[in-house]
């Protein structure tokens, strides 16, 4: 097991290198640092000196991949590629446009993101599985039919609608919760209640329908027929046999997103003013803060790969038929 995990982690290294190369190409080769400087300073009234100053302040005044003017190893390290891209591997993200340490910012913003994303994930999973079970239990009845119709309708509604509508009804009409904002500690609950609820509701449609098909597929299998033939009640068959086996694809499917919960949700965080990583990313995109976007791309892929590794491990934990070699 340990050897397997080590090997999986080593497999992740070339992927991270690939991600790094892609971001490097996107941010420095497609557009040169000069372009970025002109963009940030405003394209019209920009002097070459201002561009040079902008680049020097941010360390973009180095050659891209090879510094012939430097001494010894400096030829490779005194370059934009080494300073800006390779350093990401040790989580050295540098500074944002407003001169703040990105790493510190990320550490501070991770927790509000998690405080929103984790409840959405857990409650959402519970609600969707229960709803799917309900539909599977009453399969081929009107309840099932209208359940599926409801799911398809809910899938077809934009997330933006849930957020804007929810904010309007709960905060403006009913005055139940503040419309946006955030506070630390226990006060967070009143700010998080609505975003969590909306996050759960907006996910119900697609997930429940998907879980329902998994349940139905499982119910068509031979062992279920055997269980019924033994005279077990339908509810026992469903909860003791089908649920357990159908949970395998469900769990392994959702494990991959667990690390990504740290990244938070772009939309809810920015609508509800929660100071998490999602709103940080949106702000960075809108302010065209390249350093922050680059860092978030890298962190996102690290977390995704962590999710893939967790998925593989979780297979062995929930399904005894799979053994890691």
């Amino acid at each position: 097991m340990f050897a397997y995990v080590v090997r999986r982690v080593l497999y992740a290294v070339p992927i991270l290198i690939g991600v790094n190369l892609i971001t490097f190409a996107l941010f420095f080769v497609v557009n040169t640092p000069d372009d970025m400087a002109r963009m940030q300073l405003g394209a019209r009234r920009v002097t070459p000196e201002a561009v040079e100053k902008w680049k020097a302040e941010r360390g973009y005044d180095l050659p891209l991949v090879w510094n012939a003017a430097a001494q010894g190893t400096g030829k490779a390290t005194r370059t934009i590629f080494f300073q800006k891209s390779v350093r990401l591997f040790v989580f050295d993200f540098g500074y944002s446009e407003d001169k703040r340490d990105i790493a510190a910012e990320i550490k501070a913003r991770m927790w509000p993101s998690l405080a929103l994303a984790l409840p959405v994930f857990l409650v959402g999973l519970a609600v969707c599985i229960s709803f799917a079970l309900l539909m599977a239990f009453f399969r081929a009845t009107y309840l099932d039919f209208w359940g599926v119709v409801l799911c398809v309708a809910m899938m077809s509604i934009s997330t933006l609608f849930y957020i804007i509508g929810g904010q309007y009804v709960a905060s403006k009409v009913w005055h139940l919760v503040p419309i946006s904002g955030y506070a630390g500690g226990l006060d967070a609950a009143k700010f998080l209640a609505l975003p969590v609820l909306i996050g759960v509701i907006s996910g119900i449609g697609a997930s429940s329908r998907w879980y329902r098909t998994l349940f139905l597929e499982e119910m068509g299998k031979d062992y279920v027929r055997t269980a019924r033939a033994k005279g077990l009640a339908e509810s026992v068959v469903l909860f003791r046999h089908v649920l357990k086996n159908a949970l395998i694809p469900i769990l392994t499917g959702v494990v991959v997103v667990i690390p990504l919960l740290f990244l938070g949700s772009l939309l809810s965080e920015s609508f509800f003013g929660i100071p998490g990583l999602g709103s940080y990313t949106i702000d960075a995109i809108q302010a065209q803060d390249f350093a922050v976007v680059r860092s978030m791309v890298f962190i996102g892929s690290v977390l995704y790969i962590a999710g893939l590794i967790l998925t593989d491990i979780s297979y062995t934990l929930v399904d005894p038929r799979i053994r890691l070699e």
Binding site: V19, I22, L26, F27, V30, L266, V293, M296, V297, G300
Partner: peptide
């Protein structure tokens, strides 16, 4: 492995 929105955002920014 690159989160979709971020990759799109990075490309569109560029």
């Amino acid at each position: 492995s690159i989160p979709g929105v971020l990759l799109i955002a990075a490309a569109v920014l560029m």
